[in-house]
Design a binder for these strands. Structure first.
Lengths: 315, 315
DNA sequence: TTGATTGATGTTAACGGTAACAGTTTAGTT
DNA sequence: AACTAAACTGTTACCGTTAACATCAATCAA
């Protein structure tokens, strides 16, 4: 391994000059810089991240804290990690995956936290290192997320444009911020059109939505579209309708949220909100590194929703 | 942050003694050890991993190299990473996710490599740090994998026990070692029973298997079981049979391989080989750390297969 | 008694960087 | 020419830990 000193000797300068060429190039004359760059190239010099970290009193570790149970059948976290890792690698930071259990073990320079509940807010606010959340919150913590409200607003609008004349919202029975936002998007659209909102909430399991359709089939009018808060619920609704002989998309519309894997095995495919989790993960990483390196906060980062057209809305 | 020196002062010994208490406790008297432990506890001392790494000339970084394209809809890699991360965290190592592109960036203490092709063997053998592969190979490189041959052998046996009297193998059209092993397991079972083997190979896509059934439906006898090299292929076979009005499991049997997510949405569920990727990932990590820390090789680690019963075999 | 051996502990010098300060050169001013 | 400020470069000490060596006391054989 070649070190600063090797480069310094080769270029006939001091270690410090080499260090400066790397970290504060404006403070070194072009002449010396050229010599140093040349020496670096010839010796194939790569800075030792560990030594750097020791001298700077940093760890170069970012902890990704997944606070909810990891449902490994969903590619969600995988994509998130890929996105984060991509950015961190680029900046020579490394990613440490932690959960509630091993959260405290070892030092780090910053945190990316996902799956936060209300009860976590206080300890998260007490953390001494920069934090970015993945998933919206209403406690003033910086986050990265899809614009949930805009997404359901958009979906509801789309369904109305396609001519469905009733909109029913199928939500997730949870107190989390993203769910409130999704409901709000639906509500706003419906109220702007002077329609009467109808909301139902279930645990995020398809069979619950399916049973709901089954139990209430005679009360459900034709030409209704179901705006669902997740693809799972949307699939349940779809199956329920098909089981009862309903026609999708002719007589009933269904829309989902997430664009992850379930979408791929439904038939017809769900028209849904596609989130680029990888991209959002990268953004998370960049946001956090910015905080760490410059001390500046970019604030929250909200991604505008994309509709992925399947076959559960007309046209 | 409390350091070795703080502990040393508190315990009235030298830094070195404290260091020894941590790394070579047998070389310190019990009396001093007690003092040191007490000081550590009182000061809540945690070793600085960075400084340790610098002094030891190590990086505490393990690279996980995923050489094939990451299909993020499969929980496979997620589980693998979770398993590896679990072990590494325990030993204060951190995991760096790399691909072909950024493989060389930054130093590390060892590699876990998955998705290796034949053309990769030479550079992998040239790596100067310990390596463990995830997935079997025939080039003498240590690996962790399911016993692929035993798995298809077992599945074939199971199908025969259930009374199917013809076994057709549906394999993946690839030259990778695991595929050969899976074929070999089927062949061995069939040959032991003095049956005539029949193998077909396709790309790992369900529609290919589905089309195969469709195209050859009149040639397929009742009471045949299809031993498939993946759940995807098994699902295709299942769909093909159902499309043609065949009865599963009464007249036709189907078995898969992997036990990952697709299995959960098929109907009836595929009887398949379940791999605990998380556990295997942990084993990978432990195997590698062993090599790094003790220089000893545990050799390859082969997991015996588990059958996950679905509804695609009788009984 | 003495010298050699053993075992426990301390001292020193790294590991590869960086910040803070000290020293040198250069150019500008009077 | 002498003085000063600015711009650049070098020196030193330290980040927290460990290996190698030095030291010292206790034990033991001759």
């Amino acid at each position: 391994m070649t070190t600063l000193l090797d480069v310094a000797k080769k270029a006939n300068v001091s270690k410090m000059t080499v260090s400066r060429v790397i970290n504060h190039p404006d403070k070194v004359t072009d002449e010396l810089k050229k010599l140093v760059y040349e020496a670096m190239r010839e010796l194939d010099y790569h800075p030792n991240v560990i030594a750097k970290a020791l001298a700077n009193r940093t760890t170069r570790i970012i902890k990704l804290c997944i606070l909810e149970d990891i449902d490994t059948t969903e590619p969600y976290y995988m994509n998130l990690m890929i996105g984060i890792a991509k950015t961190l690698d680029l900046h020579q930071y490394s990613l440490q995956l932690v959960t509630r259990r091993n959260f405290d073990i070892g030092n780090c320079d910053g945190y990316i936290i996902t799956g936060m509940r209300e009860s976590d807010v206080s300890w998260i606010k007490d953390l001494k290192k920069p934090v970015v959340l993945f998933g919206e919150n209403r406690y003033g913590l910086d986050y990265v997320d899809t614009n949930n409200k805009a997404a359901t607003y958009l979906m509801s609008q789309l369904a109305l444009e396609k001519g469905y004349d009733k909109l029913i919202y199928i939500g997730i029975d949870s107190k989390e911020s993203f769910e409130y936002s999704r409901e709000a998007g639906y509500l706003q659209q419906v109220q702007e059109k002077r329609m009467i909102p109808e909301l139902h909430r279930f645990g995020n399991h398809s069979h619950m939505a399916e049973d709901f359709i089954d139990d209430n089939w005679d009360k459900i009018e034709k030409n209704t579209a179901f705006v669902c808060a997740s693809d799972r619920l949307a699939m349940g609704i779809e199956r329920g309708i098909l089981r009862r002989g309903g026609k999708i998309p002719e007589d009933f519309g269904v829309t989902g949220f997430d664009g992850v894997f379930l979408n791929q095995v439904a038939s017809p495919k769900i028209t849904t909100i596609k989130q680029s989790i990888i991209e959002m993960g990268s953004a998370c990483g960049e946001n956090l590194l910015d905080k760490i390196q410059n001390g500046t906060s970019q604030g929250s980062l909200v991604f505008e929703p994309n509709v992925s057209l399947g076959g559960t809305l007309r046209n």
